[in-house]
């Protein structure tokens, strides 16, 4: 009766175990799967301690991650580390835990196509063995069905599930927080089995979790320092326990941006990129955005703002160049004359009717009319038409001929039609002039007849201050002039 009750630690009775539960918010930015010793570790089949890998990556908390081949160092299962897939299971079905690019947490069994999805790819992914909790329910029996080939592996797999040992697990709670867990132990002597671990995690509010590598691999590191009691003995002195050199590591760190340098266009503060300037946008500062109108489709958005196409101006390229200027930045002056409109892009002139030439400085050639003088006159008399309207009205045409006489001779002196029209015009003027002269002469005679000959012609003559003899005779010379 004096002997105390002694429980067998392997029969499920209460016993003490030590371990750590780590909860990380915003796991998209604060959680990483690391290759052993840094990038390229899986390809190189490196095996290094968790401390070494965690220190280099600046992990606040780190644990051993996926399974690996102990003799070759090969990473086993699917491994995606910071967006790079560095190991593939080749479709072998084991429990997976990962985070997709949009922050989605994924737990369970994945097809190869899902692992390789490019629309929303995994940025972190690690493979374990046994899906411990599925949507808040212990899922170990179903996992054995999926992950164990019963014909050859039942004994080994069953022992793996039920033996007490050091364990590690990875999962998340209902709020989307990531949960890392480990307990110390020694296979068959200390620690917990997977049933106990699943139930413990469930009670902590974890809803999905997978089991990662345990036994002597179970290692917990805080700020680069070993913080648990590994179960492997040391080679030099088996009184001491030494951390095993393992493969991948799961790591919780200060929130980081993706990419860490925000593509060179921003500053990373607690996992959030604060983009520089007014125009870099997006979670990773990779998008140039010049506002809702985005340069009004008349320019290119650059990191200094809208670079407007030729003919456009303003902060969002919404204004055309003012009349009189054109080109990039509206920097060039238009040369258009005679009221012609100037194209704001190329500076070309749109002539008003009756004008032509690059700057619309020239009037239409005879026989042509309209804007830019592109239309040929269609007058029956072969006379030139109105250069503005194309009208064949002779009066207006004659008026135009007279007003532009010099140009007419220069440009069309040799043309038969032009000469014909000029001849007609001059003949008409001659007739009008002759008629006017005849009328004048006849009118003058009639007037003289009315004076009855009461006049005398007296030529004015002055010689050395003396009047002509006739003037002397008549007295006052001024009176002799009657007409």
């Amino acid at each position: 009766d004096c002997q105390p009750v002694r429980n067998d630690p392997r029969n499920g009775s209460k016993r003490a175990v030590s371990g750590h539960l780590t909860v990380a918010t915003a796991p998209l930015h604060s959680f990483s799967v690391l290759e052993p010793g840094g990038p390229g570790g899986c390809a190189a089949r490196r095996l290094v301690t968790v401390e070494e890998t965690a220190r280099a990556a600046g992990c606040l908390v780190a644990q051993n991650g996926g399974f690996f081949h102990m003799s070759t160092g090969e990473c086993l299962g699917n491994i995606v580390s910071n967006g790079d897939q560095v190991s593939s299971s080749g479709g072998l079905q084991n429990a997976q835990f990962g985070i997709r690019q949009d922050g989605t947490l994924v737990t369970g069994y994945l097809s190869e196509e899902e692992v390789l999805d490019t629309k929303n790819p995994f940025v972190q992914l690690v493979s374990g063995v046994v899906w411990l909790l599925r949507n808040g329910r212990v899922y170990i029996n179903e996992s054995e069905e999926t992950e164990c080939d019963k014909t050859q592996e039942t004994g080994s797999f069953s022992k793996f599930v039920n033996v007490i040992s050091a364990r590690t697990a990875l999962g998340h709670d209902r709020e989307g927080r990531l949960v890392m867990f480990h307990v110390d132990g020694q296979t068959e002597q200390r620690g917990i089995n997977l049933w106990e671990m699943a139930e413990f995690l469930r009670k902590q509010g974890v809803v999905n979790a997978i089991n990662l590598d345990g036994g002597g691999s179970a290692t917990f590191v805080v700020n680069g320092t070993l913080a648990n009691y590994p179960s492997d003995h040391c080679l030099d002195d088996d009184m001491w326990r030494c951390p095993r050199r393992i493969s991948t590591v799961v790591c919780v760190h200060e929130p980081r941006c993706n990419p860490p340098d925000c593509n060179g266009h921003g500053t990373c503060v607690q996992g959030i990129c604060h983009c520089t300037g007014d125009f870099w946008q997006g979670a990773d500062c990779s998008i140039l955005d010049c506002g809702p109108s985005n340069c009004s489709l008349h320019g290119l958005c650059t990191e200094t703002g809208c670079l407007c196409d030729a003919g456009w101006r303003g902060s969002n390229c919404s204004q055309e160049c003012a009349n009189g200027s054109f080109g990039v930045g509206c920097a060039q002056k238009c040369q258009c004359e005679n009221g012609a409109a100037c194209d704001p892009i190329h500076g070309t002139c749109a002539c008003l009717p009756g004008f032509q030439g690059d700057t619309c400085a020239e009037v239409c050639s005879l026989g042509w009319y309209g804007p830019g003088c592109h239309h040929a006159c269609k007058c029956e008399s072969l006379c030139p038409c109105d250069p503005k309207t194309g009208s064949c009205n002779l009066t207006s045409t004659m008026h135009d001929i007279l007003s532009r006489g010099t140009a007419f001779f220069k440009e069309f002196g040799g043309e038969r039609t032009a000469w014909l029209c000029l001849t007609l015009a001059l003949a008409l003027l001659l007739l009008l002039s002759a008629a006017a002269n005849v009328t004048f002469v006849l009118g003058s005679r009639t007037s003289r007849r009315r004076l009855d000959g009461e006049y005398a012609y007296q030529p004015l003559e002055e010689m050395n201050g003396e009047l002509h003899s006739l003037e002397k005779e008549q007295g006052d010379p001024t009176c002799s002039i009657k007409d």
Partner: peptide, 24 residues
């Protein structure tokens, strides 16, 4: 005290050394 080398003696393996499972 320096980090010693592990004996790798606490092995906890889900599958036998030669894996026979096939991809699905």
């Amino acid at each position: 005290l320096s980090t010693g080398v592990s004996l790798n003696d606490d092995l906890l393996l889900p599958y036998p050394g030669t894996r026979t499972r096939l991809p699905r």
